[in-house]
Simulated assay, not measured.
Amino acid sequence: MEHPRRDPDIARAARLIASASRAHMLKALSGGRPLAASVLAEEAGVTPATASVHLRRLTEAGLVVGEQRGRHHYYRLASAEVSTALEALAVIAPTVPAPVASLRVSSRENALRRSRTCYDHLAGSLGVGLMETFVSQGLLTGTPKAEEDGRGPDLPAAYGRALEYHLTGKGGEVFGRFGVDVARLSTRRRPVVRYCVDWSERRHHLAGGLGAALTGRFFTLDWLRYGVSPRVVHLTETGRRGLADTFSFEAPA
């Protein structure tokens, strides 16, 4: 007996994200860390009661997952695909100039553009700069995919798939010495190398298993630390020296 075809309910997902409050919550969660409901309410600029309603809808739709920790509820994105979808939408979303409400808001926006997490890998100008360094040093190689319609490889519609980046032999050696088990990464279902089109830089940052493993290693070595705001990460002075010594990458001051 054939099962009836079930198409993805894109309209439902779009309606959920179309709410400004829920979009703010999802963006806050796209950094990969579980956040308390109270933090998400503050991010969305709504009351805790209203936040609970929004979070219940997101949970029922399978976009976020909640868990109880003591007296507090924490939430995280249900999968990396949710973060990927948000990042892709940010690339094609129209930019609307908005007045800066305070120095704090301006500083936070600058910090997000400088260095942030995109689920479990590094993004922002720091992530883009590292990606370009890996390619220029021959640790990764990128090849455009053939476009049947001749539109070119950099359209947002081909988000993360218009180019094929591959780990080179040299890259495997360098990343291996750095403490990343490349052989183990290749045995998992997740692609070792993928990329995202960075929404703030409009260039590529490293995703996939390698991007996640490197970012995790940066945190373990205290090269990166989480900021106060969700998604924001800061490069430490140790990290600045480490990136220079290990990858010949000079992070901007």
Rank of each mutant, 00 (worst) to 15 (best):
L63Q: 02
R56S: 15
V128H: 07
P99K: 10
A78S: 13
S83R: 09
A61C: 07
E67K: 03
G124F: 02
S107L: 07
A49C: 05
R57C: 05
A61L: 00
R104L: 11
V96L: 14
R104Q: 11
S106K: 15
S83G: 12
T84H: 00
G127H: 09
G62Y: 01
V128C: 10
V53I: 06
A78R: 05
R76W: 07
E60C: 03
T133F: 00
T95Q: 13
S79F: 03
L112A: 03
A51L: 01
R56I: 02
G70P: 02
A85Q: 01
L63F: 04
R116K: 02
Q68C: 09
S136T: 05
T117F: 10
Y75S: 08
A85R: 04
A85G: 05
P94G: 10
T59N: 09
P97S: 08
V65I: 15
V100T: 12
E60G: 00
S106L: 15
L86W: 02
Y74V: 13
V64Q: 10
T59K: 13
E81F: 00
S115V: 09
Y74E: 15
T84I: 09
I92S: 15
S115M: 13
V91N: 04
Q68K: 15
A80Q: 13
R108L: 14
S106I: 04
T59F: 01
V82M: 00
